[in-house]
Simulated scan of single mutants.
Amino acid sequence: MVDFPNLDLLGIHIKVDTGAFTSSIHCHNIEIEDNNLKCQFLDPDHDKYHEKYFTFTDFVQKKVKSSNGIVENRFLIKTEILIFDQIYDIELTLTERGSMKFPVLLGRKFLSKKFIVDTSRKDLSFKNKIIKI
């Protein structure tokens, strides 16, 4: 579980995916307007959905190969993530993850040289958050 303070998203369940290079977040209503990227995060049926639109001036388009082998163009934004009581810069590609269990994937580009992944354990950041409260 992580927070994205700049996106007003708190307590978001994530999946660590060491097979994915880039990290991604579920996004919809993506539009380019006056050279700005405008979008909403999560789905209306998600318990953390807040209907807010966000506008980004600093973004790029990137080709990303998904786990099913299909290459798609995605927008990439930079923001901050709060995990284990520490804030990190993170790049996120915007994608449709509405049918997925987790709205966010953390890929190895973000994880590298910051974390050790122990696949035998789960919910460590959530447990850490509860202990601090």
Rank of each mutant, 00 (worst) to 15 (best):
residue 1 M to A: 06
residue 4 F to P: 12
residue 5 P to R: 05
residue 6 N to I: 00
residue 7 L to I: 03
residue 8 D to G: 00
residue 9 L to R: 02
residue 10 L to I: 08
residue 11 G to M: 01
residue 12 I to Y: 03
residue 15 K to P: 04
residue 16 V to S: 15
residue 16 V to D: 11
residue 17 D to E: 12
residue 19 G to H: 10
residue 19 G to Q: 11
residue 20 A to I: 11
residue 22 T to I: 13
residue 23 S to W: 03
residue 24 S to N: 06
residue 25 I to N: 08
residue 27 C to S: 14
residue 28 H to T: 08
residue 30 I to Q: 10
residue 33 E to P: 04
residue 34 D to M: 13
residue 38 K to V: 15
residue 39 C to K: 11
residue 39 C to A: 15
residue 40 Q to E: 15
residue 40 Q to F: 15
residue 41 F to T: 09
residue 42 L to W: 14
residue 42 L to F: 14
residue 46 H to C: 08
residue 47 D to W: 12
residue 48 K to L: 14
residue 48 K to C: 11
residue 49 Y to N: 07
residue 50 H to K: 12
residue 51 E to N: 11
residue 51 E to G: 03
residue 53 Y to T: 10
residue 55 T to C: 06
residue 56 F to K: 06
residue 59 F to M: 06
residue 61 Q to H: 10
residue 64 V to W: 12
residue 65 K to L: 13
residue 66 S to V: 13
residue 67 S to I: 10
residue 67 S to N: 08
residue 69 G to F: 08
residue 70 I to D: 00
residue 72 E to W: 00
residue 76 L to Y: 06
residue 77 I to A: 02
residue 77 I to Y: 07
residue 78 K to F: 05
residue 78 K to A: 04
residue 79 T to D: 07
residue 80 E to D: 11
residue 80 E to F: 15
residue 84 F to Q: 08
residue 85 D to C: 01
residue 86 Q to M: 01
residue 89 D to C: 03
residue 89 D to S: 02
residue 90 I to V: 05
residue 91 E to D: 07
residue 91 E to T: 00
residue 91 E to H: 09
residue 91 E to P: 03
residue 92 L to M: 01
residue 94 L to M: 04
residue 97 R to A: 06
residue 97 R to Y: 14
residue 99 S to P: 06
residue 102 F to D: 13
residue 105 L to C: 11
residue 106 L to F: 11
residue 106 L to T: 15
residue 106 L to I: 14
residue 106 L to P: 12
residue 109 K to P: 05
residue 109 K to Y: 12
residue 110 F to M: 05
residue 110 F to E: 03
residue 112 S to G: 08
residue 112 S to N: 08
residue 113 K to P: 02
residue 115 F to G: 02
residue 115 F to M: 05
residue 116 I to M: 12
residue 117 V to N: 05
residue 117 V to K: 02
residue 118 D to G: 11
residue 119 T to G: 04
residue 119 T to F: 01
residue 120 S to P: 01
residue 120 S to T: 14
residue 120 S to G: 12
residue 121 R to Y: 03
residue 121 R to G: 09
residue 123 D to Y: 14
residue 123 D to M: 14
residue 123 D to V: 12
residue 125 S to G: 09
residue 126 F to D: 04
residue 127 K to E: 11
residue 128 N to C: 06
residue 128 N to I: 06
residue 133 I to G: 00
